[in-house]
Computed example of a mutant assay.
Amino acid sequence: MNTAPAHYPIGTPGKPWGNLEREEWLSQQTKHRSYETDVMSVIDRLRKNFDVEQYGSLNYGSESYPLFAIRNRDWNDDLPIVLVTGGVHGYESSGVHGALQFIEQHAAGYAGKVNLLVAPCVSPWAYERIHRWNANAIDPNRSFREDSPAEESASLLRLIAPIRDRVLMHIDLHETTDTDDTEFRPALAARDGKFSEPCDIPDGFYLVDDTENPQLEFQQAVIKAVEQVTHIAPSDDKGEIIGSTVVSRGIIQYPLKQLGLCASITNARYKTTTEVYPDSLKATPEQCNAAQIAAVCAAIDYALMRK
């Protein structure tokens, strides 16, 4: 069933947005939660056991948002590097809180085994507004490329530039929500002067592998761990999830670099994007966070066994 609006309320159908439409869109964005309260306060608690680095700052109008990354103490250049990113899409809450809870609950167990680098909330402006885009109506997760138009993406690229070739595993934590179909896809179509088609939102967890460097056994190991916590998304009648062919239960593939996705930013052998479904009647917010944590731990464990 098509739950998306017949016409997005901003812009003229078939005509890309100009400055006026973007300004109208921005004027409608309001804060629903606090980055300082929800995220920065947790990061402050972590400072006693981890190194916290400010790697950039977002400045939108009168508002400024510091960007933070967390590293283990006693960084050892002889150990492999694991990168965890969350909140690239600010509205995908379990990516942010799953990353932070992973550090609090499990990071100490990897001491002396890996170097951990975690950027838990890449898009804090969007986190506060429960949105996919930044304040310029740009999707950071289509902007991880040189001369990026999104400062969220450009800042993270600068952070990882010195270690890009040394990362063993990168896991990027995301969600697929009902609002992808009711709000964000229609908004994208309106912004670009296109027309939106309804899309079936899968009920359950799934992963996105890299078309150019598929690592199916790695993805399957993560699925096996996560299904102990929450259910795995089934394929639809076409054998697809979100319009892409299912290559194994709960696993699809995207050309990560071509699409400018966050999971493409290193040359890691093992990389994946998680997709949790927080709107499911079968899952609680706590389960969604736990699914992200289980995915991170399973991904690290597999990578260490196969390094």
Rank of each mutant, 00 (worst) to 15 (best):
N2T: 13
P5K: 08
I10Q: 09
I10D: 06
K15A: 10
W17H: 03
E23H: 07
S27I: 06
Q28N: 14
K31L: 13
K31F: 10
T37P: 00
M40Q: 14
V42M: 02
K48L: 05
K48Q: 11
D51Q: 09
G56C: 07
P66H: 03
F68N: 10
F68L: 11
I70E: 05
W75N: 02
N76Q: 12
D78S: 15
I81A: 02
V84Q: 03
V88P: 00
E92C: 09
H97L: 15
A99F: 06
L100E: 06
I103D: 10
Q105D: 13
Q105L: 10
Y110A: 05
V114N: 03
V114H: 05
V114Q: 05
N115Y: 01
C121V: 06
R129Y: 01
N136E: 14
F144H: 08
R145M: 14
E152Y: 04
A161P: 04
I163G: 11
R166G: 10
L168A: 12
I171H: 02
L173R: 02
E175N: 02
D178P: 00
F184T: 11
L188P: 00
G193S: 07
K194D: 13
F195N: 11
D200K: 04
I201T: 11
P202D: 03
P202F: 01
Y206P: 04
N213F: 09
E217F: 08
E217D: 15
Q219K: 08
V226Q: 09
I241C: 05
G250Y: 08
Y254G: 00
G260S: 06
A263V: 01
R269E: 13
T272N: 10
D279V: 00
D279Y: 02
S280W: 07
A283I: 14
V296H: 08
I300A: 08
K307I: 13
